[in-house]
Design a protein around this nucleic acid. Structure first.
Length: 374
RNA sequence: GCGGAACUGGUGAAGUGGUUAACACGCCGGAUUGUGGCUCCGGUAUGCGUGGGUUCGAUCCCCACGUUUCGCC
């Protein structure tokens, strides 16, 4: 069972330092959670994930329900045993996947009706069903089943959608047993403060162990709208509960999120970028496919302590990516995940010193270089 | 030495007597935020072996040369 407490709030911002306890282990927040959709952080072993100092990892209800089936995972002794990961696991509810992945879908009050992408079967995912699947998976944090409308949705639609998500949250909570698991609610409402406020306050009334900010980094939403969505959500959430911005993983977005009171993030970006040959660095993202790295025998970042930077050069990793050797994607995944986790370490230090805004400005200036705009 | 065939970008190649030479790979860039894991989107031959000729016009027709390749002596 996970417990959470806030240790400090920064003087100049809403940023918090927190501590999460789990099976005798402790993890600090702000935290970045790598994504392991199918029960594996793509290309990495659990040992490699742990070496990046990752804490919680995320897995997916939607995917594991369709394959291999939550019954299989339950029979295996739960997701921790099944995938050999003894750290905390959060499962997404399937809400986002059903809206982004499931093609023909029919949203109703009951739930979402869609076709199984693998065999065409008609499937109905409901708030109750999502909770039940997540209980079978045996994750440590269970997410409520929400509707995740596009950023381009009208204000009228968002208001109705938020009301339905609240009814779904209530239904989910009613069937949730809470044996060794936490349940998180999800705040929606696009960039509108009145809707976010309503969504947050009503979700808090239902009462959850933690709260998420959903519906961000959707479509072509602007950064301003994203940051507003953070603020308009955290403003109305209780101080003593964990706040989680779903799907966020651009370094600058994480920093801006922490400034607005967010504690944890998850994102596919570090591993997806890795598979496509890109690496995070303090001087901005680099593309190892670029010809200029062909004879570059330096590590991605000489100051990085990850396995890839300690033992391999850009030229070698470029070669692996070019020849489609999976070891290349693996080294870059290790580096990119470690990069975001080091980022959270630096963020924590900055909060400790009450210098987060200064850290943000310096980070931005270096990361974006000439393109920097205050 | 004689005869045949073929020569199109980095590669494999399509193609037509008439504005911008198909496609694929490669190469050069870019994208990517609660993951459909080898993805997506751009750019990439001012030239069709070389030199002549026919024609209003030739990568496409004719001639010579060169190269490659096959067969024969």
């Amino acid at each position: 069972m996970i417990t959470f407490e806030v240790e400090k709030t920064e003087k100049n911002t809403m940023a918090r330092l927190g501590r999460l306890k789990y099976n005798g282990k402790e993890y600090a927040t702000p935290m970045f959670m790598p994504v392991g959709t199918e029960g594996a952080v793509k290309t990495l072993s659990p040992e490699e994930v742990k070496e990046t100092q990752a804490g919680i990892i995320l897995a997916n209800t939607y995917h594991l329900w369709l394959r291999p089936g939550d019954d299989v995972v339950k029979l295996a002794g739960g997701l921790h045993k099944f995938m050999n990961y003894d750290g905390p696991i959060l499962t997404d509810s399937g809400g986002f996947q059903v809206f982004s992945l499931a093609k023909p879908k029919d949203i109703s009050e009951t739930g979402v009706l869609f076709k199984n992408q693998y065999n065409g079967d008609s499937l109905l995912l409901t708030p109750e069903k999502s909770i039940q699947i997540q209980e079978n998976l045996g994750s440590d944090i269970v997410m409520s089943f929400d509707e995740c409308p596009p950023a381009s949705a009208s204000k009228e639609y968002l208001q109705k959608s938020v009301e339905r998500t609240l009814r779904w949250a209530k239904r989910g909570k009613e069937v949730f047993k809470g044996e060794n698991q936490l349940l998180f609610g999800i705040v929606q409402g696009g960039p509108y403060e009145d809707i976010r406020k309503f969504s947050a306050e009503e979700t808090v009334k239902i009462g959850f162990d933690g709260y998420s900010i959903g519906g961000v980094a959707n479509d072509h939403e602007s950064k301003e709208d994203m940051y507003r969505a953070f603020l308009y959500s955290t403003k109305y959430l209780p101080q003593d509960k964990i706040r989680y911005a779903m799907g966020i993983g651009e370094p600058i977005d994480m920093i801006e999120g922490v400034i607005r009171g967010v504690d944890i993030f998850d994102c596919v970006l570090p591993t997806r970028l890795a598979r496509h040959g890109h690496a995070f660095t303090k001087d901005g993202k680099i593309n190892l496919k670029n010809a200029k790295y062909k004879k570059d025998f330096e590590p991605i970042e000489s100051t990085c302590d990850c396995y890839a930077c300690k033992h391999y050069t850009k030229a070698y990793i470029k070669h692996l990516i070019g020849t489609q050797e999976s070891f290349g994607a693996r080294l870059l995944s290790i580096h990119n995940i470690r990069f975001l986790i080091r980022l959270t370490e630096e963020i924590r230090e900055a909060i400790q010193k009450d210098e987060l805004l200064k850290y943000r400005d310096e980070f931005k200036k270096r990361y974006y270089g000439d393109a920097y705009e205050k």
